[in-house]
Each structure stands twice: as structure tokens, then as C-alpha cells.
Nucleic acid binder design. Structure first.
Lengths: 362, 362
DNA sequence: TTGTTGATTGAGACCGGTCTCTTTGATAAT
DNA sequence: ATTATCAAAGAGACCGGTCTCAATCAACAA
């Protein structure tokens, strides 16, 4: 890289000190708000600072103090309203405690997540909040923890990592959602998730490295089996990683044999796309197909019919994890806490009995 | 503040240098990737760094270099999908150029915006992207500019501030949207915005300090007047600052006299809430009331009927402004550019002729 | 053989704060 | 009057990098 920086000369403590006819140390004391200074000198320095339009260099400050006042956050996808709401919760809690937030996107890719963590550590954030995209490779998270910087986990727990964690009871709530469908009479219920695995085909839980999703699938399968559904695994659909992919998955699912009469979507972004495909195929909800999705997104309440959703306390999830982290930042010595927030289901109009014979109207 | 920092001792260049039996300068050269070093020494240092698990202190680095590799972004409300999509555009462009993004929310409040700008400058970001919440008080933006740090404006132009700016033709597109309503026969058309003013009553354009909204209202009023609508100002509704407030505004509007037969919403968050109120009052869209909103949000395409929207190129807006800023960061000396991105309208099903007599069915 | 050149490496200043340790001077105690 | 005490201000090291400049040394030319 060339010499591009014009090196803007900014006003420093020394400049102010000189202007106020005091030592650098004294000026620093009033400017930094520490130590003791007489009122007269304080006034002088303050005046000089104002006249020169002094702006403290946070970088220099946090280099010597060792703390930056910044919390690093790594989430899967900020565009997903689930995460933006959670981030909002984090930001609010952080601001209330005088911290700032620096945000990084992992795109649910482990290598990007690692890079982001490395970067944030490099920036010397005081602590990190991560939504781990994989439970397999968590060396970078161990590193954080080991470096003495507090780490807190959001939405996804890691059994092997004993740090503050805030999640919901994904298994339990998935069971409840599935039971609603089963009770309505469904036997062909599909579970659609963005998580992918080798071969894009679901075989067993061991393939699924995103803890929340694994829990959900586990709950889903348990209830299905209890209901006597044969090999419910065949209804688990992976790889709905983008709108286009979701569309592909949904299309395959809806036109293939053994077609589901009900769908449980793992997040609202997926559900939206599935809903579009359903509409496009001129299928009716819930007469032709029932739908439940995780996350009470905006749109789910204004469709016709409105969608039955799993209403995770997303904002509280973010707020809670931030509060846990901040508590740790302030030196709380208590052992790591694993908070599991209560979750409910909003039954709206998208679930009905299975249609006897579904005609493909597309 | 107490002595809380345990002052985690991290591995520094000196530590690595000592381990590799070279000088600090040499170790720094290989670790920092600058200057010339012989292959043998490079290998030694690299090995030592790996053994010690050296992590560069980004803070110290950017303190001496003067640049942090960070772009500061201040937006009105990250939860608004308009902004999260724009931020996504910014992030993508930033990452592509090797920059990182630090995000701050202003909540559309000028004092918070000022604090955020001050903070980001303190953190020595290389440049800033701001969505100015007011055109009245822009002293803090002038300061940025004056401090030599590049500034770029997103979505809202400031006539008095000659910096890189990316917007859409708000006035023109508002005219087109309004004309669609006028052409459908509407004469009572309401414009609803989150922007507020003293008295919460619209009187004239001089009250509106958010440039994009002012432009839109201007366009709206122009078309209304051209269509011979008497005092269209009375249909401009301010203060839809939150879902609750929007609800209040919508309720007042829909139950009062001179009730609108069509509504133009200034953003999708407002439109969603208005749509809910409409539903709640068992009014039909578009038979009883027509609706157009700015921003092609997710939900607008899945309602029944789908909503006619102004489709701003939001992602491109963010990407564009980031690219402009980065160009400046790299030393481009060209004069400030004001990009106005083309915008279209997606006509869907929420506009129809005005109903003759609207009955309040609620 | 000796001076020149060029490639490497080392020494140390510097960035802009914080913070420890000294010095200074005034007041209080002896 | 002398000394202990204490608050206020000054000096300078330090954080962990970057970067300038000087020193070293081998190869090469004269």
C-alpha cells in the first residue's frame, strides 16, 4: 500500500497542555476525567480544549487502558429479521451500560466466522457475542475464552463450551409445533431448514452441526415417531440457504411423490419463500397445505390467512445475552450461566386438517 | 471507575522477536508484512509467532498508521428493513475493499446522531456514512468533513453540504406514485410519514427537515394540486414514529371527517401498521381504500392483495455510497458526486378506484 | 587490495493517550 | 521556627505497533 494517509494532524493532549500552560499530565487529568486537579486549572484546560476543538483519540486511550468499550457481535445474517431484532436487543443493553457494538456477519460460514472473530479480537473488543454457525469447529471460540476475553453465545448452545449462553428450548418448542400439526391429523409433515449437509440429504442428527436446528429436528422427529409416522426423516429438507435454493427445495417437495400436507419452516425467511411458492402453485393455506414457521416475523400476521408461528423472545434473547456478557465484563465471578427463555406459539390461521387428495394445480 | 482490568498480557512483536532471536524491528517487518526480510529470518519469525500464538494488536497498529480500516455508519433505525438492506450493501462493498463496518443507530434523533458521530470520530474510523436525520443542524457533519475524514450521505441529501451523496429522486417518484392514485380517481389522498414537527400538524415544507421526506411531500402536493385537489396539505399526516403512534394516526385519519380513500405511506414499517389497522376495521383493499408504500419490503408481496410499492434500489444505494466513500478513502481527488439512482414502482393489487361511500365497519 | 553498492538487520523515536512516581508549596502540628 | 502532612502539578515511562535512519556485511568493481 502506498503512502496515502495525509496524516491529518489532530489536536492532542500536549497541544491543549501547551495552550493552557500546564503539563501534559495535568491536561490529561482534566481531559480524561481522572485524578485531582484544582478548579482554576481545570477551567483553564477546559477552555483551551474548547478553543482548540480537542477530540480525544479513543484508540490511544483504549490502547493504554486495555479496554475499548466495544462489544463484538458475530451473527449469521443481519438481514434476517430474527438477527436484526436480536442485535437491537444487544445494542440497547450495551448502550445502557455504556458500551458500543461492532457488528460482523458470518453468512453462516465457519471460515468467515473465524476471520470475524480474529478481527474483533485484533480490534481488542472487550467481549464477544457469537451465534456459532457450527458446533464441530470451535477452536476460535476456545481461543477467545482462553485469551481472557469474555464470550457469550446467542441462540445456539455449545455443550463443550462452558460460557454464558442464552437460548430457547428449541427441542421442546419444536415438539409443541409438530404436535399441533399431528393433532390436526397430518402424517406427511416436512421440516425445512437452511442448514445443509454433505449430499444435501438428511440421514441422522449427527450431520447437523447447528445446535438449535439439531434440537428442533430432534423434537420434530420425536413427536412424529410418537405419532406412528413411518420414517419421518424422509421429510426433513436441508439446504434452503437462499431464496432461490428455498424455492428449489419447496418445488421439489411439492411436486414429488409423498408430498407433505404440512410444513414446519425453520425460520421466517424460508417460510416467506415457501409461502410464495405455495401461492404460485395456487394452493390454499390451510385447506391444501398447513404451515407453521419459527419466528414471529412482521409479515406472518398480515397474510391471508395469518401464519401460525413459534414466537421466540428474540429481543429478550439479545438483551439477555448482552446483559450476561456485560456482567462478566464488570468482573462477575459467578460460573457460566445457561439461560433458556420461555417461548410460545401463536396459533393463527395457517393450520388445518390435511386435504384428502391434493391436486397439483400449477 | 475501579481497577477492573486484569490487563491480559498478550503476545507482542517484542516477545516474538526475542523468541526468534531477532530485533523488534525485524520481527515487526515480517509480522506486519512490510519492508524486506531474508527468507531464513522470515521463517524463524513466522515459526516463533505461531508457537507463541501471536495476534497483532489492531489498535496499536492503527494508532501509528493513522488508519483503522473501519468505516463508521450512522443510520436512523437498523430494524427498519430499508436500512438493514442498505447496511448490507455497505458491508458487502466494504468487505470487498478490505474495510470493516462499525454501526451506530441514531433512532432518528439528532442528539443521538451527534453523539454517534463524535464517538466514531473518536474511534478514528477512516470515513463515515450518515443518514442525516435533520438538515437544520449539521454542524457535526461539517466537523467530520473539516477534520479531513471523508463523509458520504445515504438516502438523504443536504444542499448545504457538498459531499458524496447517493439518493433516489424522491420528489419524482412520489409524483409518480401520487399520480397513480389520482389517475385511479382519488381526491382524498393521505401522505403518512414518521417525520414529526412542532404541533404534529403539517403546515408547510419548511417544517420538514428530513430531505427525502420533504421532497416526497413536495412531489405529492404538486401532483395533488395539479389534479385540482383543494388544500392537499390537510392530508399530510406527521408523527408515525412508532407502531403505536402510527396506529393512533391511522385511527384518527380513518375515523375523522374528510377521510382518505387512498394512502401513500412513507415507509414499509408505517404501511404495515396501517395495513393492520385497515384489516382491523374490516376495510377491504383496494375496494374501500387504496394503499401505496415506499420500499418494496418482504411482506408487501404476500398480502392479499399484494401492495403496490415504490421500489427503491436499497441495496444499490448502500453499495453505491460505500463505493463512493472508499474511492475517496483511496485518495480520489474528484469533486463530490451526487448520485441519484433510478427508482421504479411495482404496481400490484392495492390500488383501485375510490369507493363512493365508505362505511365505517369497525 | 580497497572503495562502492546493495541488501539486511538493528536501534530508537514516535503515535496520543494513561498512570506511577517526584517535586513543589502551603498549611498544620510541634 | 522547624518539621510533618497533604493536595496539586510535573516528569517521564509505557502500551504495541510503524517507520526512519544508521550499522553491518558480502559481493563486485577499480
Amino acid at each position: 500500500m502506498k503512502r496515502t494517509a495525509p496524516k491529518t494532524p489532530s489536536i492532542t493532549v500536549s497541544d491543549v497542555a501547551r495552550a493552557a500552560n500546564v503539563s501534559k499530565a495535568t491536561a490529561a487529568r482534566v481531559l480524561g476525567g481522572y485524578g485531582v486537579v484544582s478548579d482554576a486549572i481545570r477551567a483553564d484546560v477546559t477552555a483551551a480544549a474548547k478553543a482548540l476543538d480537542y477530540r480525544p483519540n479513543e484508540l490511544a486511550r483504549s490502547m493504554t487502558t486495555g479496554r475499548s468499550g466495544i462489544i463484538g457481535v458475530v451473527v449469521g445474517d443481519i438481514e434476517n429479521p430474527f438477527f436484526s431484532l436480536a442485535v437491537r436487543g444487544i445494542s440497547d443493553a450495551a448502550r445502557a451500560a455504556g458500551f458500543n457494538v461492532i457488528l460482523a456477519n458470518s453468512g453462516e460460514r465457519i471460515d468467515v466466522e473465524k476471520a470475524a472473530v480474529r478481527l474483533l479480537i485484533g480490534k481488542r473488543v472487550d467481549g464477544l457475542i457469537v451465534t456459532p454457525s457450527e458446533s464441530r469447529d470451535i477452536s476460535h471460540l476456545r481461543d477467545i475464552h482462553r485469551s481472557g476475553r469474555p464470550l457469550a453465545l446467542l441462540d445456539r448452545a455449545l455443550p463443550d463450551l462452558d460460557v454464558d449462553t442464552v437460548t430457547v428450548d428449541d427441542r421442546g418448542i419444536a415438539m409443541r409445533a409438530t404436535r399441533i400439526l399431528v393433532d390436526a391429523g397430518h402424517r406427511n409433515i416436512a421440516y425445512v431448514t437452511a442448514v445443509d449437509a454433505k449430499g444435501h440429504e438428511y440421514r441422522d442428527l449427527g450431520q447437523i452441526y447447528t445446535s438449535s436446528v439439531r434440537e428442533r429436528i430432534d423434537g420434530f422427529l420425536t413427536v412424529c415417531r410418537d405419532a406412528g409416522i413411518d420414517r419421518p426423516e424422509r421429510f426433513v429438507r436441508l439446504g434452503a440457504t437462499s431464496p432461490a435454493e428455498t424455492r428449489r427445495v419447496a418445488d421439489a417437495m411439492l411436486s414429488g411423490p409423498d408430498r407433505p400436507t404440512a410444513i414446519l419452516a425453520s425460520d421466517s425467511v424460508i417460510a416467506l419463500e415457501i409461502f410464495r411458492v405455495i401461492r404460485q402453485r395456487v394452493l390454499r393455506v390451510p385447506e391444501d397445505i398447513s404451515l407453521i414457521t419459527f419466528h414471529n416475523a412482521d409479515w406472518t400476521s398480515v397474510t391471508t390467512p395469518p401464519i401460525t408461528v413459534v414466537d421466540q423472545p428474540v429481543y429478550a434473547l439479545g438483551k439477555g445475552v448482552a446483559e450476561l456478557l456485560i456482567r462478566r465484563l464488570k468482573g462477575d465471578p459467578r460460573p457460566a450461566e445457561r439461560l433458556i427463555l420461555p417461548t410460545s406459539i401463536f396459533e393463527r390461521g395457517s393450520v388445518g386438517p390435511p386435504s384428502k387428495a391434493i391436486v397439483n394445480r400449477a
